[in-house]
């Protein structure tokens, strides 16, 4: 496994690791090395798969925190910046046209298109973001442009080949949905719905539930769920 060193190791005294999660969640990658590291792996140089001592992990865009800013180009070459959408409710959908779970919600079921049709008219902005790295599944301007047409997606697909935006949000799967409220804060982070099967859409659409509450200026009842799908095809 490649272990690209993204951030320098930051060894922080034990105390901080016990601080409430919210402290470590401020959007932009402000990596904090988990203090757990100093308690384990003493003298172990074997680097068992999965152990990356020198790299911090951010919790991602957790509900209630500021949505990480980004500026990305879509499949038509147009640039979209979150900063330009101040005051709007925004739905971000992590996307990979070749992932079977994305196909399930864009082709077998029209989960996202249906959601878009209903909420676009209420002023909600939708954007898909593809964090597949160069050479990995789902990567490529032409492929994404073609699949946008094939799936009939009416909103832009933003290309994030470096994976930086995906990692700032903590996007794990395709699909993985983030909803940003009018204050620019994360209102929802998680799965599109509650059915992990191959072809069925769930009977609970978490994104829809959250959108209704956000638009009604109510607190979101379920602001966080475990997303499901294919892993985001990051390059490092």
């Amino acid at each position: 496994m490649k272990t690209l060193k993204l951030f320098p190791a930051l060894l922080i005294a034990g105390g901080l690791a016990f601080a409430p999660m919210a402290l470590a969640q401020n959007a932009q990658p402000a990596p904090t090395a988990p203090a757990g590291d100093k308690d384990r792996g003493k003298g172990d140089k074997k680097a068992e798969k999965g152990e990356k001592k020198d790299k911090g992990e951010t919790a991602g865009a957790m509900p209630g925190t500021a949505a990480p800013a980004f500026s990305l180009t879509d499949t038509d070459g147009k640039t979209h910046s979150l900063a330009d959408l101040k005051g709007k409710v925004v739905v971000l959908e992590w996307f990979n046209p070749e992932c079977p779970f994305v196909v399930k919600h864009h082709k077998v079921n029209k989960t996202f298109n249906t959601l878009h049709e209903e909420y676009n008219s209420k002023g909600v902005v939708f954007m898909a973001i593809n964090s597949s790295a160069k050479g990995k599944e789902g990567n490529g301007m032409d492929l994404n442009k073609k699949m946008k047409g094939e799936f009939g997606i009416q909103y832009p697909i933003l290309i994030d080949e470096s994976g930086m935006v995906g990692k700032a949000y903590g996007a794990k799967t395709t699909p993985h949905v983030f909803i940003i409220d009018t204050d620019g804060k994360i209102a929802y982070n998680g799965a599109i719905d509650n059915d992990r099967s191959r072809s069925k859409a769930g009977d609970k659409n978490y994104a829809k539930m959250a959108l209704d509450e956000v638009l009604a200026k109510k607190a979101v009842t379920t602001p966080k769920t475990d997303p499901y799908g294919c892993s985001v095809k990051y390059g490092s």
Binding site: G50, K52, G163, K172, S231, V232, S236
Partner: peptide, 9 residues
Amino acid sequence: RHVGEGDIL
């Protein structure tokens, strides 16, 4: 246990 690129566990 399997950790993929992007710390996907």
